[in-house]
Design a protein around this nucleic acid. Structure first.
Lengths: 147, 147
DNA sequence: AACTTTGACTTTCTTTGACTATTATAGCAC
DNA sequence: GTGCTATAATAGTCAAAGAAAGTCAAAGTT
């Protein structure tokens, strides 16, 4: 078994309890006798939004990496959808999805609106046009993973 | 938890009652076993005018640091904050604001979390570093206005 | 070819300390 | 008493050091 797989399993075990863990990157690296950046590798290949994970972190003294897993029943449905989502989305495609989600009670009006605002061309005005739809899709995926 | 966070919480607790506190810098530093200038660090990163805090101080014998919180009605408060928000925001500055909003019940955990996710470096990974903080601020302002 | 491991370099946030600035007060000269 | 001065008691500033985590590409494996 590869080291990365072992680390992955270890982290998943920790997540089990609380549906989330807070890790110290260096500690973990130490524990598994690898370079710290391997932890990043494991996280970025295995704890991805598409699989229902959300990762937050903070640098500096007292820094941490927090990984949470959303385990709601509708999660499978959401995951299915996320898999199908293109890596770029226009404003109107976002709207299509939101309507769909509203219909299935995956979110309420208030949240849908928040997402709409966050992803609007207005909010993203400074992102150049070529990248905008890609960034919109990124934000969207991260958001619905965390609904 | 970081010392700075602990000190921040401690001070906020003291403020709760009277909407203000008067501190002695050295005493506080002593209490938390840190150098006095750490108190300044905490104040300058967490008790900023943008969040409605007002800090007065005096040196010399009998010196003090007084921190007060203005408690405007909700909408005024929001407007006030929006006006003061810089045109760029780091992830951690967003966090500071959200914590504040939570504290004053301007939004709930769920929404705060969504905003956090939407504005995280993760979501905005494809935005180049030079622009990221500006775009984050744009989205943030749009969101807050539409809260 | 795809995946994993490694390490040098970068970025972010916190802690520390040396140096500076301000204020109150005690003591002294008058 | 009044005014001046020295001293002690505070707080402020700023830059360096420290403590994480992130990035990226080269090297190694399968």
């Amino acid at each position: 078994m590869k080291l990365s797989d072992i680390i992955e399993a270890y982290i998943k075990d920790l997540i089990e309890d609380e549906n989330s863990v807070e890790l110290r990157r260096n500690e973990l690296a130490d524990k598994f006798n690898c370079v710290p950046s391997q932890i990043n590798y494991v996280i970025s290949t295995r704890f991805i939004p598409e699989l229902g994970f959300y990762v937050e972190s903070r640098r500096g003294g007292g820094g941490y990496i927090k990984i949470s897993k959303s385990s709601l029943p509708r999660q499978d449905y959401i995951n299915d959808i996320i898999e199908k989502i293109d890596n770029k989305m226009s404003q109107s495609v976002v709207d299509v999805y939101l309507k769909e989600f509203l219909r299935y009670n995956i979110l309420d009006e208030k949240i849908a609106n928040l997402i709409r605002v966050a992803l609007s061309d207005k909010s993203l005005a400074k992102v150049n046009l070529a990248d905008r739809d890609y960034i919109r899709a990124d934000i969207f995926k991260n958001l619905i993973i965390n609904l």
